[in-house]
Design a protein around this nucleic acid. Structure first.
Lengths: 231, 231
DNA sequence: TGACTCATTATGTATAGACATATTACCATT
DNA sequence: AATGGTAATATGTCTATACATAATGAGTCA
């Protein structure tokens, strides 16, 4: 590598120094200008490298105070939350979708509370099953706010899953995610082919467009399912 | 806002256009140079704004091909993975730590496999309990590779938890995380004050320094525990 | 002692210009 | 029609320079 140093090289070299304790936790590291001189690059290049380390939580930066190695590396892990179809097909398995139920009915209190909806509004309620190689992968229990997505009223959701349909038909500006463990209800156990009370991995997602709630979905997976990531 | 446009303004304006379907999913958006002209900024500024949108999965970029609005927004959520102590204290609750067991013994096959360790190596095995307001919050089952962290042999871990100790004494370069649901074993149920077979939320973390495995930890939480984030 | 002012300083961001690199589109050849 | 080479092009990155902004810390005054 005879060429000049890229911001990646500089970032990796600084990460190495931190991992190797050349730069101790809590210690101030040299200023951008000094590092730029050392690496023979422009300050902007060092700045970009440092910004990436800061975003990863490896260093902390403050104007005037300088940059220091994070004392408690609040490791921030990124998880990709793909569409079920992509998740299944990425594993080289065959995806199949089945609609279990569709109704327009008043949403229960916990759903309304999670979305911040006042009053017993009627919403579109869908129950779906996603299969991988014909084996149950996820049961989906979804509520759609028809006031935010009126077009959903005309859609049967018999061939396309609500998540895929919404991606193309309902823009959103904010999303909340919650993951938890729970025991399978009778209905969930039946759909997934588990014993009632088996531990299931539950993901919930709520989305909004501006202030208006769009949808709430509860995704229930068999206990073999995992959420994983690396940093 | 009379000053010139910042990359934030430009980024937000472009995100707005995408959310409002001014720029349709899958469509190519104008080239950087054209956008720079429109916003009255330098191309580098538009570039930075677009890079952030790309990182967030909102647009996809390819050299020569241009930038297009992502068809399947592979939502990528970021979770902060704090130390237990910080997690508990951030909720305004009192943190307490208790060591349940300490032994140097051969690691079981599944731990060795997860870390990529060959042979029945003897490792430091710790079992700990973390409490919030005197209520069980997490049982920790940890294996430490003494070849990578020899100093751990001399530490009793009676007053400081292994996670905090390791943060200050064992640099790492890579970490893997896995989250899953499981049923509480007899030992876990006993420690957490749950019924055997109750659904528990399990996090596993494996860390390495270069090629050398450092530690494997299994963190078991009561079913009330959740992992949450927003985007 | 304490509160305030202000210069100093490291990072934050913008700019113009240049070159690098991946990919496409088109054209020529087989 | 299939293949292969090549020019065109949008993004990727670096540089040098400038000014902005947030903290710090020293000095001043009550």
């Amino acid at each position: 590598m005879a060429g000049r140093a890229s911001f990646r090289d500089i970032r990796d070299e600084m990460a190495r120094r931190i991992a190797a304790r050349v730069w101790q936790p809590g210690a101030i590291i040299p200023a951008e200008e000094e590092l730029a001189r050392e690496f023979g690059s422009a300050r902007a290049t060092v700045n970009r490298a440092l910004q990436e380390l800061a975003r990863a939580g490896i260093v902390e930066r403050k104007r005037k105070a300088g940059t220091r190695v994070a004392l408690h590396p609040v490791r921030e892990a990124r998880f990709v939350i793909p569409l079920v179809r992509q998740e299944i097909e990425a594993e080289g398995r065959a995806y199949r979708y089945r609609l279990l139920g569709r109704a327009i009915e008043p949403a229960p209190a916990d759903i309304r509370a999670a979305l911040g909806l006042a009053g017993a509004r009627r919403m579109l309620h869908l129950r779906c099953l996603h299969l991988a190689d014909e084996r149950p992968w996820q049961v989906e229990d979804r509520w759609i706010n028809l006031a935010a997505v009126p077009a959903a009223r005309a859609e049967t959701f018999e061939t396309i899953g609500p998540n895929e349909w919404l991606v193309h038909n309902a823009p959103i500006s904010r999303a909340d995610f919650v993951f938890r463990a729970a025991r399978a209800s009778a209905v969930e156990a039946d759909a997934l082919g588990l014993d009632v009370g088996e531990a299931v991995f539950v993901g919930e997602r709520m989305t909004w467009l501006g202030q208006e709630p769009v949808t709430h979905v509860r995704m229930v997976h068999p206990p073999t399912h995992t959420l994983r990531t690396s940093v």
